[in-house]
Amino acid sequence: MNDTTPRHIGVVTLLGGILEDLQTLMRQEAQLLRDEFRLELSKTGRAASGFGIGILCAAIAALFLLLMLVHGLTVWAGLSLWASYGVVGGLLAGLSVVCLVRAQSMAGRVHLMPRRSLFAIKENVQWIKERVTYKRI
């Protein structure tokens, strides 16, 4: 009985160490996942605020340029004011459709899930499965 007791304690200690290492690894992977997600979220926020300010300034500038274009068409082309507004509005509607279609295409390429962290977790799970299966055989 004395021969099996130290070996039993060694196996229990070894399994306990493995489980502790596994817990540490999972905590580290979870932290990596959180950090990567926060980084991507932060980059998204900075990009969105830059786009917002740029779009606001562009919209104000575009408004003044469009008013200039409408009144220019009235003078240069001899169109009535309402017809000039119709021409400019129609051109803008066509441009907006093109922009929206392109934006929808680009939105399809956005990845909100952090792929590198998920890949690392999958590798770790696969490694653990291989080790557990190997020990059973």
Rank of each mutant, 00 (worst) to 15 (best):
D3N: 07
L66W: 10
R27H: 02
A77N: 07
L91F: 14
R27Y: 03
T44D: 07
K129W: 07
M1I: 14
R131W: 02
L15E: 03
G86N: 06
I128E: 00
Q126V: 12
A62G: 13
E36R: 01
V110H: 11
F51K: 07
L66N: 14
L66I: 11
H111V: 08
R46Y: 13
L65A: 12
S84T: 03
I137T: 08
K122P: 00
A48M: 15
R46C: 07
M68F: 14
F64A: 14
A62N: 13
A59C: 05
R136S: 10
L112R: 05
L32C: 02
I53A: 15
V87N: 02
Y85T: 06
S105L: 12
P114R: 02
F119D: 08
L112T: 04
L14Y: 03
Q23C: 01
V98A: 14
L66V: 07
M106V: 05
T4P: 00
R136I: 14
A77Q: 10
I55A: 15
G10A: 15
A47E: 14
L19I: 04
L100R: 04
E29S: 01
G52Q: 11
D3M: 08
F64I: 06
M113E: 07
V97D: 11
G50T: 03
I137D: 10
N2M: 09
H71V: 10
V125C: 02
D35I: 01
R116Q: 10
I137W: 09
L32K: 00
V87G: 03
S105E: 14
A120Q: 04
K43W: 06
C99V: 10
F119T: 08
E130Q: 14
F37R: 03
G50A: 09
K43P: 00
G78C: 12
V101P: 00
I60N: 06
V125L: 03
L19V: 04
L66S: 09
R115P: 01
L39N: 05
R109N: 09
E36C: 04
T13N: 06
M68G: 06
M106W: 04
K43M: 07
H71Q: 12
R136H: 11
R7Y: 14
V70R: 03
C99W: 04
M113I: 06
L56K: 09
I121V: 08
G16Y: 00
R34S: 14
W127G: 01
K122W: 05
K129H: 06
T133Y: 13
D35G: 12
M113R: 05
L39T: 13
M68S: 07
L69K: 04
V87K: 01
L100S: 11
G45N: 15
M68A: 10
L56Y: 10
